[in-house]
Design a binder for these strands. Structure first.
Lengths: 187, 187
DNA sequence: GCGAACGGTCAACACGCGTAGAGTGAGTTG
DNA sequence: CAACTCACTCTACGCGTGTTGACCGTTCGC
């Protein structure tokens, strides 16, 4: 095996082990040592590749932050777009585990918390509010974000029986009217 | 000052400091030492009163779990009851900070996570499903819980600008139709 | 083929943590 | 006032952590 292929593989193995542990046990409870052990590697190598535990976490717990999909939607399309965007973050094994690792730690890890609050929730809410318009636009946009976050947590982090096993179609069918109630609040 | 009044006061001071730190920094990042310092007390005293860090956390981070209010509601009343129940958990300074401490750690602290998942979400969803009836009852109940959790987190843990500052009346006015869309899903 | 480069390991350090046990001094009780 | 209780403090232990720098052995460029 060539040298840099070997490098790429072990780096990927470390990353996989890190994602797994960060997403299950959380940042503080996963140790460099346990990640290294799971990747069959020396702890010092993890440091060499990722600089620090924070660096490893930043690399392992990612949240693809493309606001475009949602923010280019019309009022009419917004509910489905928001749902598709949220559920799409969890497609593909690595993507999914990276997203779960991020979500699991977004309440307690300072940097993940900052990103979730400022970049994911606030920025997006501002954009959605612009699409919505009206007096309560900002609040309604915030509540849309709140419901989507609740859905993501229930389905992928808590894995609640009903919500985690539901089909995507059922989720869209039931949640679309929910979001619409915030897009076009009844008089 | 009498001896046991003094005792009660320092115990309360420790508990207040613990709630404050658990709710802001999370379980792992608050130390017995820092809590003791904030309460102007020796770390060993915290151990003497609460047994262990886990014991202190269990005492400080509480979630009043009365399912009655919600589960005695009719289909018609359920949205308002669920909202009132959720918002009610955060009334009163101590109650509020205890609830925030619990929520902040419900993704990463094993015991808080277990309680949130099994007792708060699952048990309640089962009860709500019984009220709802119909094919998707369990899923719809789960989604109601998901939205309520998202609301609680956004308002009290993340303190998102729009959601945290909204009046209770606005919240009820906007969220009631949201929940109703899950109670009576449109054909 | 030889020296550099690099993937990978080993042993160790310094630190902060939860926790334990002996000690102290003021309030309580007979 | 003496004996005692109990809130509270001091000191220290043991452990696991993130992190470091010196060290091997293979692979690459010349």
């Amino acid at each position: 095996m060539s040298r840099d292929e070997r490098r790429r593989r072990t780096e990927a193995a470390i990353l996989r082990a890190a994602r797994e542990q960060f997403s299950v046990a959380g940042y503080e409870r996963t140790t460099i040592r346990s990640v290294a052990a799971a990747a069959s590697v020396d702890p010092a190598l993890v440091m060499q590749y990722f600089g620090s535990k924070e660096g490893l976490f930043a690399e392992a717990a990612r949240w693809d932050d493309d606001h475009q999909t949602v923010l280019q939607a019309s009022r009419e399309e917004l509910p489905r777009a928001a749902l598709a965007d949220m559920l799409g973050k969890f497609e593909g094994d690595d993507t999914r585990e990276a997203a779960v690792a991020f979500m699991r730690n977004c309440l307690t890890h300072p940097e993940a918390n900052r990103i979730m609050r400022d970049e994911v929730m606030c920025d997006r809410a501002a954009g959605i509010a612009a699409i919505l318009g009206g007096d309560d636009a900002e609040l309604r946009a915030g509540l849309i974000g709140a419901c989507m976050m609740g859905l993501g947590l229930s389905r992928y982090v808590f894995e609640l029986p009903g919500v985690a096993t539901a089909s995507r179609a059922d989720l869209e069918r039931l949640m679309e009217p929910v979001l619409r109630a915030l897009v076009d609040p009844p008089a």
